[in-house]
Design a protein around this nucleic acid. Structure first.
Lengths: 268, 268
DNA sequence: CGCGTAATTGACAGGACTCAAATGGGGTGG
DNA sequence: CCACCCCATTTGAGTCCTGTCAATTACGCG
């Protein structure tokens, strides 16, 4: 199904060796192309609920998300799981340097990953300073994103948070698929529990707001997980933020170009 | 005043060349010591309200916070300033690689910085792969912290958020000063506006909660900016989180050791 | 068909935001 | 030195939002 929506372009436009989500990874792409660092990606499918990396474990792989949503959770001492961040198609996953992870990474939906052995990646990083610089830039963007994410909470109204989130997902999807943000489109989210935890509210409130948006004709509820954005502009207006304010969330995300030999291509 | 609370130790315990906030920077420290990379730090004083780095500007320095609080703000299109993060003594400041900053960095209180020219730092980084790896590790911790920060909002009760924040500041101060967390101590915060923005609430609510905590004898309001933590354990209990849950916030923060020749020393 | 989970819907109470006014402190100028 | 202003903070009253609890519905699966 995912393959269907990929746009076919000339082979020169994309790289078979890597998946670049932004210009910094493009550096990795070019480097992988022009030298032989042994950057071999492989495609992985993981079902919803799968634990990709447990808390405290040393990661043995790095990966890009191709489809689906990965949730980053922190388990509190009282047993509750809090979603601290989410990774979408085009995002990078995995701590380098074999540092034990502070969080658990789980598949919030069925996910497709483009993965690579952490040892290989590290070896390549150690060999190439250029690659190391690119990696720092990648991390730099992650710090920015984690901070931007906090802006979601700047909106005290939970309806605004839901609207902001839907808008961001819509913008990201549009960019990934090389489509216009003005067009209506279907985005698929994770379950209400993850949504609520991520937005700092409850499943009941999320449910109410989604149905409210549905009643006033801004979105259409396809099924429990999928929503069609009917009126992107009004959704953005309800969210109370401008397009500029959420630019950081989708800017720098990769664009899907083609898939061939089981390797998807993302380019800046 | 700051000098008074520094503990004097033998000269071998600290490094004149750098200020290390955690083990990763210790690598920078050792490296600076054993080679001649030209890592020269200088002390800087900045008054409250000073803009250290404007939005979109390319940073020309990197620095460690020695005292005071630096706020990282995002200016929304409607003109409102949202505090997305705060830097405390021992934290690292400044994007590398001369990337334009996504945020503005401002002095939330009077601050002391230990600064270095970004060019020098970058040159040293380029020369040493070891330094580069150390820097990646530093950034890694920053991503973790930015995500941990989101846990503040997991508490829907604003009183809990205020209590969590006070607890975290108290734990950080205790660690920095090599004191026990059980002891009462005075912490100095920024203005109510920054507090409210950071905690995702309003200045009125923050004011009410602080006075509530004062009335029940958990804290003592010294003046508008300073608060004495009278009962750290009860404060933690009110916050609703365990010490484990907030460990990430203060673990890995440096310890103040000594100041000499205008250079403060922080060690793991 | 029956079960368990996820999601919806309703009723209700309490917390937090909003608006508004009073208080306090620091700095400036007369 | 004092009066004055400006700003930050405090305090109060009222309303709405949203969390909580509870019951119902929908859905997937064996």
């Amino acid at each position: 199904m995912l393959e269907k929506i990929y746009k076919a372009t000339s082979p020169d436009n994309w790289c078979h060796l890597c998946a670049s989500t932004d210009w910094s990874v493009c550096t990795i792409a070019r480097f992988a192309k022009h030298t032989d660092l042994g950057l071999h990606w492989r495609k992985r499918q993981e079902p919803e609920g799968e634990i990709l990396l447990a808390y405290g474990d040393k990661p043995d792989f790095v990966a890009y998300v191709l489809s689906g949503v990965v949730r980053i959770v922190k388990i509190l001492s009282n047993g509750r799981e809090e979603v601290v961040d989410l990774l979408y198609p085009g995002d990078f996953l995995g701590a380098p340097l074999h540092l034990p992870s502070d969080f658990a990474f789980e598949a919030a939906t069925d996910v497709e990953l483009l993965a690579m052995d952490a040892g290989d990646f590290e070896a390549a990083t150690a060999k190439s300073r250029e690659l190391q610089t690119a990696f720092i830039r990648l991390r730099e963007r992650e710090v920015s994103l984690a901070r931007q994410r906090i802006l979601l909470f700047a909106a005290q109204r939970t309806l605004e948070r839901v609207a902001i989130y839907l808008s961001i997902r819509h913008h990201r999807r549009a960019r990934l698929m090389n489509q216009r943000v003005q067009d209506r489109a279907i985005i698929s989210l994770m379950g209400r529990k993850d949504l609520a935890s991520y937005l700092g509210t409850t499943i009941e409130t999320v449910s109410r707001h989604l149905h409210h948006l549905s009643r006033i004709g801004v979105i259409r509820i396809v099924d429990n997980r999928r929503f069609e954005i009917l009126d992107p502009d009004r959704l953005l207006h309800i969210s109370g933020v401008s397009r500029d304010d959420i630019r950081m969330f989708w800017q720098g995300c990769g664009r899907l170009v083609e898939i061939r030999n089981g390797v998807a291509a993302l380019r800046q």
